[in-house]
Design a protein around this nucleic acid. Sequence first.
RNA 1: GCCGUCAUAGCUUAGUUAGGUAGAGCAUCUGGCUGUUAACCAGACGGUCGUCGGUUCAAAUCCGGCUGGCGGCGCCA
Length: 425
Amino acid sequence: MKTLYVKNANDKIGEEIELFGWVYRQRVHGGVVFVILRDSTGIVQVSIHKNNIGPDSFNNAQKVTIESSIRVKGKVVEDSRAPTGIEIKCSEFEIISLAEKFPIQEGAGKEFLLDIRHLSLRSLKLTEIMKIKELIMQGARGYLQENDWHEVFPPIITSAACEGGTTLFSIDYYGREAYLSQSAQLYLETAIFPLERVYSLTPSFRAEKSKTRRHLSEYQHLELEAAWMDAEDIMKVEEELVASMCREISEYKGLERFGRKKEEMILNLPLQRIKYDEAIQIIQKKGIDIEWGSDFGYEEEKLLTSEFEEPFFVYDYPIEAKVFYMKQNPDGKTYACADLLAPKGFGEIIGGSQREDDLKALENRMELDGIDKTPYQWYLDLRRYGSVVHSGFGLGIERLLMWICNLEHIRDACLYPRTISRVEP
RNA sequence: GCCGUCAUAGCUUAGUUAGGUAGAGCAUCUGGCUGUUAACCAGACGGUCGUCGGUUCAAAUCCGGCUGGCGGCGCCA
């Protein structure tokens, strides 16, 4: 078993160590060969000198190909000429598996890279993104554990739609039609009765024919639902959760390659909250003709978010712009809901709301929206048996990651992006 | 669903406006080189231009159909 990683080499200067990894780069200069060894923790240069090493080892280093798996032994020395400031003066060089000609090189197109995602995953950039994705979930779990949230595991296969309007992927379920879940929300609402504060991290599926840099057909959805919380309370949870996720990665040095400074990852709470009405005014002042009542298009959202440096809330959207399960405000025109938007056009990160807890009001709303209540009987039951004020929200992990890492396209935020035109590899 | 755009070697591409059967860089292979940083130098190999059809003496280039990709809109996280 491998016990030493590239990152540990920094502490081993002057010592003889053994490293396992893959060839990231290789350059042959006659009597000296430079191999950049890569492992999950980073890269380090290995120098192989003809005169200081056995002929087999030198021969191996000379013929080794990019992405071959290798074992090297050597002394760790400081050297300013090496890319990371240290290098391994090689004494043994073994090829474990000689790679065939690796298809990826500098300048490869993005489409080609997606076609061979199973290989392009090895890039340093994607490696960092995967680590940051993991870290933000650690930050989320840290917050959730400290604040008495229970993780639950709702089904992905469902029979009922949840969000209005969005398209479902249908599957053949033993001869019946079923769907891939778009949101765990309705199931989470059932779970607040035994557990009060619940969350889940599940994939959500949207069969929207979206071709934009912000949409995926499958994405990681972190959803929270809590009893005894109103719209105000849940906004507080949202910002504390996001702040905790950002704080977790603020110390991570890999952040620099994405042009982010750690100070930017320390959010100033409370985040700004602007009412939908104010947002409309801001957009109108910019010369865009937008009517009260419509949800923001991307152009409007871009204009709005360019006014902010940190994520911010827009709350109290008009009823016609949102979904039936939300709690209506006393004004009769808006819902007690809030979206968290990332600045500079990165878009909506969170959509949340207080839920309608009154049976009659919910039924009325469904009738007005022309929704068939039959498949929702179990959902309506929640209002029959001990209904309680409750609120919740859903957070798109890839959207958040996209903002944190300044990604141009959301597909870079996942291992194997699923989009309208890609299910492979 | 709508709008736009693109398809030339393993990869990235020039050539398309004004039609005359393709040019480069990288990769690969061979040789050289003991400090490179996307190493460098020399040489070789490699494509009939997404696909089907049309116009023409002649089509990568003009026209039409099809397929696929990319970008954007709507929708959303």
